[in-house]
Write a protein that binds this DNA or RNA. Structure first.
Lengths: 342, 342
DNA sequence: AACTAAATTGTCATCGATGTCATTTTAAAT
DNA sequence: ATTTAAAATGACATCGATGACAATTTAGTT
């Protein structure tokens, strides 16, 4: 394993000069730079990260906290982060985290200190846990919040417009002819639940249609199991809705199951749409029409914002709120002839 | 941030002594050890990992290579690794890896060198990619293979008995009265496919039952989409099987969809069982009876074996093959009154 | 009390990089 | 040709830990 000294010796320059080349320092004569680069290539030299970081006091990894790594949303987001990190030549350190663990503070500081990360990414809903925010603020952790409920001038947030997306997918249902549309909404503590429901109602207002009756708007909690029970209750009526907008794909999958149980065909008898575009959306039949979160874009933006923040540190030219564009993916669960991609 | 010198000064000992305490060196008087520990606690001292590793030439993270982070199996395994790593006070660095990428070697060496990992964990099917194994061998990477197809005296493998599990779940179907059982098998390149099919046949032999006819044993590739098509073909007959053993849960989910499409009730008209026990197994209706892979146990074992290997290095007392016990989880897809847990 | 071996502790160099500041080289200006 | 400022390079200390080995303390023996 070649070191900076091996390179220096072979190139007949000082280690400092090699260091300058590595770090793109401008004060190196072009000819020596090329020489050094050539030797580095010959020796297949790569800087020792530990030494580098010891000196710089820095770490280089990106930390991602997961509350439930099996959840579709978190899996998808992580997947996107892995791609984005690869593009940026960085590495991802993943850690389980729940504020329910009583020693979460110790646990988190250990992770931050010991695991070689310089930045942290927080997903919903932990990004809205107050004491966690205080902790991050106090410890000056370089982080971004993904789709937080509460905005805050101390933290950069990266999100999509949930309400608009909800409105748009509801309008889509209206446009293909549905009028009796039900909505299964998510966990009440989750900001997304409220926003998505608001968007749902807005679609009707915008089209000058009557607000759906209250029995058509029910409360679940984003989970399949609960969703199944709720959907069964919802469909236990003679006056069935012709479409359901579920708060997320898991719940939409549950709605499909409930509909099938009751002998309804999808989408002929009932259209069902979800939200998030997780793996599950294409691992069931029929595949789900849904709103695709801009996972990859969010991941890329997170990385670039974090880097920017680390440089500018406390300067004020860091954009605080980032809103990225979503898209609607049409699949089998709402249309006999899907136009969208898989 | 307190350093070893701060501790040494306050405790009025040398930094070396503090170092000894940190590393559990025996040659420290009990009283001084306690004193030092107390001061460490007071200052909330934690060793600087970079410095430590610079000196020790070591890294501390565990690397996990994922080919498809959205796949149920990989998600579940990662999830288990996160738990096991937490228990062991270690951290997980996750990286996308596919040998289809043409510069996979560079990519992998960079990951290993730059991302602070000391160990590597390989999942199927990349653990069976020959050139990758050669690379790991040549570069002396400390790693374990999870459920590899090809055994090899240079690598430690951690697996479950796929064939026995397949046999057992087939026997379960036989025991609850099924005789006409179909099997949708996995991708032919995947060792698990063969083993699971073998196990399937063995169950019939053991019970002195005729081998299922060839039309009942079809080939898919572990993916939902393919599985759906195959299952539809399988069920497009008048002489329906009464049960299906699918090679994995995704395929079982596809079989459920195909059955529903054809108006069959599960499990009344047809029982369906899967394999792996991934998230999907309980995110569809009916929930799937399946074989639970010993994810957590595999993860824990991986960590302990890796640590052991690093110590013993080339010594021969490292157990090469580890086979861990699976379990069968009975759920709604095969039984009207499931006995198993969720 | 003196001696010795064992137990404990300390000194200093080192890992591989970068920062500070001094030194040398280069090129432009007189 | 000499001076001078700028550009390029290098010497050395440093980051926070541990290893090798030296020095000291302790306790046991005679």
């Amino acid at each position: 394993m070649a070191t900076i000294y091996d390179v220096a010796k072979k190139a007949e320059v000082s280690s400092k000069t090699v260091s300058r080349v590595i770090n793109g320092d401008s004060k190196v004569k072009e000819s020596t730079r090329e020489l050094v680069l050539e030797i580095m290539r010959q020796l297949d030299y790569r800087p020792n990260q530990q030494a580098r970081q010891l000196r710089l006091g820095g770490k280089s990894g990106i930390g991602l906290l997961l509350e439930d790594p099996d959840s579709g949303y978190q899996t998808r987001f992580q997947s996107a982060m892995l791609h984005a990190a690869m593009e940026a030549g960085r590495y991802l350190s993943v850690e389980l985290f729940t504020h329910l663990q009583d020693n979460w503070k110790t646990h988190l500081s250990r992770f931050i200190k010991d695991s070689n990360i310089s930045d942290l990414i927080l997903l919903p809903t932990q990004c809205d846990f107050g004491p966690l925010r205080d902790f991050l603020r106090e410890n000056n952790v370089n982080c971004v919040l993904i789709s937080p409920t509460h905005l805050d001038n101390d933290f950069v947030s990266i999100a999509m417009d949930e309400r608009l997306a909800a409105r748009e997918i509801t309008e889509y249902l209206i446009n293909i002819g549905h009028r009796k549309i039900a909505h299964i909404s998510g966990h009440p503590d989750h900001a997304a639940s409220l926003l998505r429901r608001q968007g749902f109602y807005e679609a009707f207002e915008k089209h000058n249609l009557p607000r759906p009756r209250d029995e058509y708007v029910v409360q679940s909690d984003f989970q399949f199991k609960t969703g199944l029970k709720i959907a069964e209750e919802l469909l236990n009526t003679d006056d069935l809705p012709t479409a359901i907008f579920a708060c997320n794909d898991e719940t939409a999958a549950a709605a499909c199951s409930a509909a099938h149980k009751r002998g309804l065909r999808i989408p002929e008898d009932m259209a069902i749409v979800g939200f998030d575009d997780v793996y599950l959306a294409t691992a069931i039949w029929p595949s789900l029409t849904t709103v695709r979160q801009p996972y990859l874009e969010m991941a890329r933006r997170s990385i670039s914002v974090l880097a920017h923040m680390r440089e500018k540190s406390s300067e004020s030219d860091v954009q605080l709120r980032h809103v990225l564009p979503y898209s609607i993916i049409e699949r089998e669960s709402s249309s006999l002839s899907p136009k969208g991609e898989i």
